[in-house]
Every structure is written in C-alpha cells, then in structure tokens.
Amino acid sequence: MIPVDDYLFLSLALFTIGVIGVLTRRNVIIMLMSIELILNAVNINLMVFSRMWGTVDGQVFAIFIITDAAAEAAVGLGIILAFFHNRETVLADEMDIMKW
C-alpha cells in the first residue's frame, strides 16, 4: 500500500520545481509553463485526498483547476503574443514600461 506521504512528497517536488521556474527564469513562456506545473502539483494533492476520503469532491476541484489553467493559458499566451509583436522579445525583465 502506497501511503499518502509518497504522493505528497511527489507533489511537493513538482511544486517546488514550478516555483523555482517561475521565480528564476527570464523567459515568460517558461514561467507560464512553470505555473502549469504548480497547478498540476496541486491536482495531485486534490486527487490523493479525494481517494483517501473516498469522495469525488477533490476530482471536481481538479476539473475546476484545469478549467482555470485553460483560461490562464489562453489569456497569458494572448498577452505574450501581443507583447512579442510590439517588443520582439519574450523576456520578463524587458517588460519594464507600462505603456508604449
């Protein structure tokens, strides 16, 4: 029997990697992908607790999180495309003016 801890450790590892990715990379697309990784780690937690309590509530919340990820990807990538067409770059620290 796999204890819940193993799943939590896995989720923690993915979460940490995601956080490091968001905080240290300069490329906005990689940062967005790291956020997806964080959401994914959360989903693992929801799934294992849903399994532990024998209900499907966690799975329903995971569906909401995936919906949210879809919305975030659509808007985020839209912003990146618009930004790229104006500034010819996808690096986060060059997004330093509010208006152009």
């Binding site: 590892a13 993915l14 990697i17 995601g18 490091i20 990715g21 990379r25 992908m33 790291s34 990784l37």
Partner: peptide, 8 residues
C-alpha cells in the same frame, strides 16, 4: 520529477 527539472 525528472522531466519537470529538465523543463525548468
């Protein structure tokens, strides 16, 4: 985990 590290 391995591919997540590689991804970042």
């Amino acid at each position: 985990v391995a591919s997540a590290i590689l991804m970042v």
